[in-house]
Design a protein around this nucleic acid. Sequence first.
DNA 1: ACCGTCC
DNA 2: TCGTCTGGCACAAGACGGT
DNA 3: TGTGCCCGACGAC
Length: 382
Amino acid sequence: MGIKGLNAIISEHVPSAIRKSDIKSFFGRKVAIDASMSLYQFLIAVRQQDGGQLTNEAGETTSHLMGMFYRTLRMIDNGIKPCYVFDGKPPDLKSHELTKRSSRRVETEKKLAEATTELEKMKQERRLVKVSKEHNEEAQKLLGLMGIPYIIAPTEAEAQCAELAKKGKVYAAASEDMDTLCYRTPFLLRHLTFSETKKEPIHEIDTELVLRGLDLTIEQFVDLCIMLGCDYCESIRGVGPVTALKLIKTHGSIEKIVEFIESGESNNTKWKIPEDWPYKQARMLFLDPEVIDGNEINLKWSPPKEKELIEYLCDDKKFSEERVKSGISRLKKGLKSGIQGRLDGFFQVVPKTKEQLAAAAKRAQENKKLNKNKNKVTKGRR
DNA sequence: ACCGTCC
DNA sequence: TCGTCTGGCACAAGACGGT
DNA sequence: TGTGCCCGACGAC
């Protein structure tokens, strides 16, 4: 998943589109999160000494529930209201990529069988991690009991996250995945979760600023991303990030670039356009993805179902009752203090007038100052 | 900031 | 020679709480 | 699975 090297391009050409800030500056915000991606990370990372996953007595995996529970609590503690979005059916174009992945799986399984050392076995085992239907359903059950809203997307979760942000149902999409920008989410938050414990600050990427900074339309930006390399199709062999940007700037679209290369005017023999290249379909998947209209979605954060939560996590999954109870009170507290939260619908309409842009710039300035002051305060205390 | 533990 | 792409490799991916 | 880093290959200048 993702767009190869896009982060590097933005960091280099439009660093001003990435605002770096503290988790505190998102207090009162709602965000949409790709649930399946989170579950995958938890399944890989939440392990014990011997490399095995956390389980209950029956041997059922609990790593994903553990991760989901505590990460969500952490966000609630910080006044952030998460909404999780689960993947639906992958689009047909992705099947190439998916068959590639499954053939890699077969090889990994072989290696696992051949592995001699425990260490080697552990490594290969992690590569085999896959988010199952059961993992997803268990996570959904947990979220339901916690009173956290979730959505099952028709196809790509990233696209649905962006849709929620575009319609003002949430402030931003939170993801490590750069292709969320292709769906034109107003804001993309990277490193949202581990920012407090780790050194990386939260990166807030403003899609409109990226487009303006690169001086590309959204269509051209998507074409650039396809050339950089996405999940849906191949890219032009011999064209890396530098050339891709140059080409899109001078020719304006992949159609024109293909024309240019095939005409031989480029004096370049090394560039190889893929045969039967479905770039037009890939482009449409980004520009017009299948999503549930954000206007039809009503996100609600409800009080946790205490008794059932304890039954599920403690009785069934063997979580510490003390910790779960403390989690429940954190949930209740966090939801109370938020009350109405902040207004996330500010950027509802995509086209902006000059006045709106000026106002947005002013707000950004003020936020910056605010963050600086906050940092000073916290530093002073320590 | 480390490091063992969570389940 | 410089710039750019490719392919090889290693590495790490959570959160909590006590010290 | 992706990301950065180092490397050699290969055109461009």
